[in-house]
Amino acid sequence: MAADEAPSDAELVRRSRAGDAEAFGALVARHEPGVRRVARSWTPTAADADDLAQTAFLKAWQDLARLEDPSRFRPWIFRIVLNAARDSHRRSLLRPFHAARAIEGADPPDGRDPSRAAAAAETTAALEAAIAGLPEELREALSLHVGEGMRHAEIAEIAGVNEATVRWRLFQARRILREMLGTLLDQP
């Protein structure tokens, strides 16, 4: 390995297992953007998403020895955060998405054309609500595929299903969203 080459996940996992907190910090830094994005699709606020992500990473630290293949840290940590999100959701401590989410994520007002800004905000809010209304497994597949750019095989590994099921879930998610958003998508 070249001196300036970043250590692999596997190397960082090995060092973390030996108690190297800095190495684990490097793993967190590498994967936290995606983990936080996925967590965000389950939580009403960004702060809740960060708490969920942090909980997932701490759980990962405790369970590092159970990771059979250190090179598979990425799908493993996503599986942990999704399990944590589902657990929290089922305990009703969190619920996916929230009215505040639409406001937080809405497009900034377009000072030149208020009507377009209002239409964009309406579409964004409708999209948020539609995503929130998806069944868990469809929302999970969509956030990993569209949000994180994961291939079907990696999503299948995380979800514990085969690739055909992942493809079906992605198709169903898009089909449902298309129907729910209806004519809002006709706007230019």
């Binding site: 907190a21 800095e22 684990f24 910090g25 490097a26 967190v28 830094a29 936290e32 953007p33 936080r36 994005r37 965000r40 699709s41 960004a46 998403a49 960060d50 992500a53 942090q54 990473f57 701490l58 630290w61 994520g105 579409t123 964004t124 999209l127 948020e128 995503i131 969509l142 956030s143 569209v146 949000g147 994180e148 750019g149 898009r174 969203l177 298309r178 958003l181 998508l185 006709d186 706007q187």
Partner: peptide, 27 residues
């Protein structure tokens, strides 16, 4: 309409997450 939905999804689900890094907090 389908292309527009795809664009909205990408914008929504892959938007960067600002804020302080979790790394220091976790360590």
């Amino acid at each position: 309409a389908c292309l527009r939905l795809e664009g909205l999804l990408r914008g929504r689900l892959s938007m960067p997450r600002p804020g302080r890094s979790l790394s220091d907090q976790v360590v």
